Simulated scan of single mutants.
Amino acid sequence: MQVAVFSSRSYDETYLCAANAGRHQLRFLEARLEAETARLAAGATAVSAFVNDTLDAEVLATLAGLGVGLVALRCAGFNQVDLAAARDLGIRIGRVPAYSPHAVAEHAVGLMLALNRHLCRAWSRVREGNFVLDGLIGFDMAGKTAGIVGTGTIGRVVARILLGFGCHVIATDPAPDPELEAKGVRYLPFLALAEEADILTLHCPLTPETRHLVNAEALARMKRGVMLINTSRGAVVDTRALIGALKSGHLGSLGLDVYEEESHLFFRDLSSRAIADDLFARLLTFPNVLITGHQGFFTAEALTAIAETTIANIDQFAATGAPLHEVSVERLAPPAEATSTPALGL
């Protein structure tokens, strides 16, 4: 099969070619998949898309007109896909349901440690020959209450790490995990969890119920000085509300690996131009904010698993007309990482 791989970088080519082993003709395109670039798929019978590619009705119609029958997503979530349009156009959607939960979980905890112990500021000072410790005071993780929103495959790993640190772990999820409960994790409704947590970390999918789950009301209910970490999806938090809480000092620190409008920023080199997104630029002005560019998944193990599953989806489609890990086009909501029920106890 001929496959147009959108939003590809050198590492995509390396890992996909290794997994492919010459079975399919892969054409790598740096361009994001969107209305203006969809026609670059001409000649392909399948496309591979990433998390910030656009797969709305217009793009899917263009792809169908070019003879594309498969979209092989290189990610777990599919909130960027118009599933109703895909169904009507006869395009099959495949995804990577799991790769390495450890990659994202460890990155989330890394953000916690870096923020708590002011590692970025300390590194900058030492590089300048400044060894003063003023302003670098952190806190012991042991004994603190860590709240986890979503205890699916990633959230469960985060819980185990934080329990190892000696944290009191609380969680919210529509289906509590018996193994975590046996380890002492308490499940609470979301707002009750928000009130108790010293550290709050988000590992839920983006659904209509979780969009702007962390809003002005939820932030006001949190402890003053709380640490908030988001490695799930950008729109789970309301960016304007975050800025307000940071300005007032109510939000103690913020770690983000995702952002609501990241599709026009992340995975691009914008170092030679001004950031046009005023909200993102404002976030960068706070000394207690640490942002990474959606790199939580970025380990060799995860990239290997993503590539192998993507090629497996293409293999199965070539053989049977359906990908191995197909997103049912009847399912018109994103997949819950934690459970099949997206709603959280609010």
Results as ranks from 00 to 15, higher is better:
102 H>A: 15
142 A>C: 02
88 D>S: 05
122 A>W: 12
103 A>G: 15
108 A>P: 10
112 M>V: 08
93 I>H: 11
96 V>S: 11
105 A>G: 10
92 R>A: 15
73 L>F: 10
132 V>S: 07
102 H>E: 15
92 R>E: 11
79 N>K: 10
60 L>S: 00
140 D>P: 08
143 G>S: 02
121 R>I: 08
96 V>H: 14
130 N>G: 00
62 T>Y: 00
132 V>R: 15
98 A>F: 15
108 A>I: 13
119 L>Q: 11
93 I>S: 14
123 W>L: 07
120 C>N: 06
93 I>G: 10
71 V>Y: 01
80 Q>R: 14
85 A>E: 01
129 G>I: 11
109 V>P: 14
62 T>R: 02
67 G>N: 06
89 L>F: 07
130 N>V: 06
114 A>S: 12
73 L>M: 14
104 V>S: 11
75 C>Q: 14
130 N>F: 01
86 A>M: 08
137 I>D: 04
58 E>N: 02
132 V>I: 02
124 S>Y: 12
140 D>E: 09
127 R>L: 12
84 A>H: 12
101 P>S: 04
120 C>Y: 03
131 F>N: 00
107 H>W: 13
129 G>M: 10
69 G>P: 08
60 L>C: 01
93 I>W: 09
95 R>I: 05
60 L>V: 03
86 A>Y: 08
85 A>G: 09
114 A>V: 13
112 M>L: 12
134 D>N: 07
62 T>N: 01
137 I>C: 04
86 A>S: 10
103 A>W: 10
115 L>K: 15
71 V>I: 03
73 L>C: 09
125 R>A: 00
108 A>Q: 14
70 L>K: 06
131 F>K: 04
74 R>N: 06
96 V>W: 15
139 F>H: 09
73 L>Y: 11
125 R>Q: 09
106 E>Q: 15
70 L>R: 02
75 C>T: 13
79 N>D: 14
142 A>N: 06
79 N>G: 05
60 L>D: 03
83 L>I: 03
111 L>N: 09
108 A>K: 15
134 D>P: 01
103 A>K: 03
136 L>F: 09
106 E>N: 12
64 A>S: 08
106 E>A: 07
118 H>N: 15
121 R>L: 15
126 V>G: 00
102 H>I: 11
84 A>P: 01
133 L>Q: 06
125 R>D: 01
126 V>I: 14
126 V>L: 13
68 V>N: 03
87 R>I: 00
93 I>E: 13
117 R>T: 12
85 A>K: 02
89 L>W: 12
59 V>F: 00
131 F>Y: 14
109 V>F: 05
119 L>P: 04
92 R>Q: 08
138 G>M: 01
98 A>W: 14
83 L>M: 10
86 A>T: 05
116 N>S: 12
106 E>P: 06
128 E>N: 10
